[in-house]
């Protein structure tokens, strides 16, 4: 299909707040994004012309924000609402090979849903990873550098070279990627073997480094992972905030033609255009 025919569902509920810029990123890359309230997918309080079906879209995006305030635990409430009312539709969407992207709060939700890391099944009954409180104990907004560590499985980074370093800011309180302590090594090895690790935090020299380059203390400096099929992807940093060169933290020093985050959106659209 043509890129302009690709319909992107940007899913929101109260407290989602990065939907506009995420939608713009897809629109700039030529696709047809639509901001869709969860209630439109569930048909709650909607008129017929406002009701939507997940299956009518080719890409599902859960953008950043503080869905339902993140008061329980980041992403927990929206994940529970999705799981209770549309688990089947979501599993079907993923198993058709359609891409799902979670940015920041969206990543937290995908982990809560159990579709990430998604090692053995499309959606695990319980979460197998967690995005915990930053080591600093505080919300942190700062520019971060990410190394593309993926060997080719993730359909969201196909336009990046392996080892390429990109810039995207983080803005979260709960972004520390963690695995259960008693299975940490085993699961981490599986993620590596399956080529599920996508982005790792690095310093200006491209080396793995501590705080603040790794802003939250993530295990193995993990900033983003995909499922074992490569079509579900979550990352804590915000690629939509570096779509243009002049959005990058140091653009007045090194003026890039394009922002680094653009590649994420172009990669997935390229995949969908070819596959469907």
């Amino acid at each position: 299909m043509k890129v302009e025919e690709v319909k992107v569902c940007i899913l929101i509920i109260e407290g989602t707040n990065c939907e506009e810029e995420t939608s713009q990123a897809f629109r700039r890359s030529g696709a047809s994004p639509e901001i869709v309230h969860l209630k439109q997918l569930l048909g709650q309080d909607t008129r017929p012309e406002e009701t939507r079906k997940l299956g009518d879209y080719q890409i599902l995006v859960i953008p950043g924000g503080f869905s339902s305030g993140d008061y329980v635990r980041a992403g927990a409430i929206l994940a529970a609402r999705i799981k209770s009312r549309m688990e089947g539709a979501l599993v079907e969407f993923i198993e058709e090979g359609k891409p799902v992207l979670g940015i920041c709060n969206g990543f937290q939700i995908l982990v809560e849903l159990g579709v990430l890391p998604g090692i053995q099944s499309t959606m695990s009954r319980y979460p197998t990873a967690s995005l915990g409180w930053n080591d600093s104990g505080r919300f942190e907004c700062r520019p971060t550098l990410l190394e593309n560590w993926n060997k080719g499985k993730c359909i969201f980074t196909s336009m990046l070279e392996r080892g390429q370093i990109i810039q995207a800011p983080t803005a979260h309180a709960e972004g520390k990627f963690m695995l259960p302590k008693h299975r940490e090594k085993e699961l981490l090895d599986t993620l590596k073997d399956n080529d599920q690790i996508v982005f790792r935090y690095v310093d200006a020299e491209g080396q793995i480094a501590g705080y603040p380059w790794n802003p939250n203390g993530s295990l193995f400096s993990i900033a983003g992972i995909c499922n074992s099929e490569g079509n579900v992807f979550g990352m804590m940093p915000h690629p939509e905030r570096t779509y243009f060169g002049f959005q990058q933290a140091d653009w007045t020093r090194n003026v890039p033609d394009n922002g680094d985050g653009k590649a994420v959106f172009e990669s997935v659209l390229d995949y969908v255009a070819k596959k469907f």
Partner: peptide, 15 residues
């Protein structure tokens, strides 16, 4: 400054 999200909306050109 780091505790405030100064980048949300993706429109902060000079930070």
């Amino acid at each position: 400054i780091h505790q405030y999200d100064h980048e949300v909306r993706g429109a902060t050109v000079v930070k």
